[in-house]
């Protein structure tokens, strides 16, 4: 066989195989689409007397019943934003600071702390005006200072701003002196808010107000 004939045969083979792969790819996409769309079914239940439409409405209502009523707070720890919401409408948006994600290990390695803002659903458990900060052990370890034995030595005024909303396990939404750091992840787990913004959040929220942190 001549060279040009061989080349022609080779090219035609390549062309045909490319066409075959394309066709297979197309068929594959169609098949996948059909499979993923219809990958479910049901069995007929003769005992059930509820219409699908009514069941649908009932399920939606049930889920809606879990929605928070009235005012609630949402904190986006990735973007460092706080949203004060009322019935799914945003009343206030504020720039905040959340957990730094750093790890502190006590010299000797006995204890360690991860400075993350906890994620999930929480409730406002305490509302404090002009709060004092009772410094925990890690605050002294971080500064490489000895841990005091007296309670009075732990108390520090003016650090937490004018207001604080406690949501459990020592975590607070509070004010700050370091407004320059708002928008960055710098805290030890608390949510820092500028005092002006916090005032509005503080006044709108009550004990039991839901907080969603994600």
């Amino acid at each position: 066989m001549k060279l040009w004939k061989r080349l022609l045969l080779l090219f035609s083979l390549l062309y045909l195989s490319a066409l075959a792969i394309l066709a297979l790819s197309w068929i594959h996409q169609l098949k996948l689409g059909a499979e993923w769309k219809t990958a479910w079914s049901f069995e007929l239940d003769p005992k059930a007397k509820i219409k699908p439409e009514t069941q649908n409405a009932a399920l939606k209502n049930k889920i809606e019943s879990f929605h928070p009523k009235g005012v609630y707070i949402m904190v986006d720890s990735a973007e460092n934003r706080l949203y004060l919401k009322k019935d799914s409408q945003t009343i206030k948006e504020a720039v905040v600071s959340t957990g730094s994600g750093l790890v502190l290990v006590e010299p000797g390695g006995k204890r360690s702390w991860v400075f993350d803002t906890p994620k999930g659903e929480f409730f406002v458990k305490s509302k404090i005006q002009n709060p004092y900060w009772v410094k925990p052990d890690w605050a002294f370890i971080e500064e490489n200072e000895p841990i005091p034995k007296k309670m009075e030595d732990r108390v520090e005024a003016g650090v937490l701003g004018d207001y604080a909303l406690g949501f459990g396990q020592g975590y607070f939404i509070h004010g700050t002196l370091y407004t320059r750091l708002l928008g960055r992840n710098v805290t030890h787990g608390c949510v820092r808010v500028a005092d002006k913004d916090l005032e509005e959040v503080f006044k709108a929220s009550k004990i039991g107000t839901r907080i969603y942190i994600y």
Binding site: L44, A48, K49
Partner: peptide
């Protein structure tokens, strides 16, 4: 035949298979 015979009113979905 069961599915065709009975109306979709009394339906409880459970298993994933193909369409009906």
């Amino acid at each position: 035949s069961n599915q065709a015979a009975k109306a979709p009113d009394n339906v409880r979905q459970t298993q994933p298979t193909s369409g009906v």
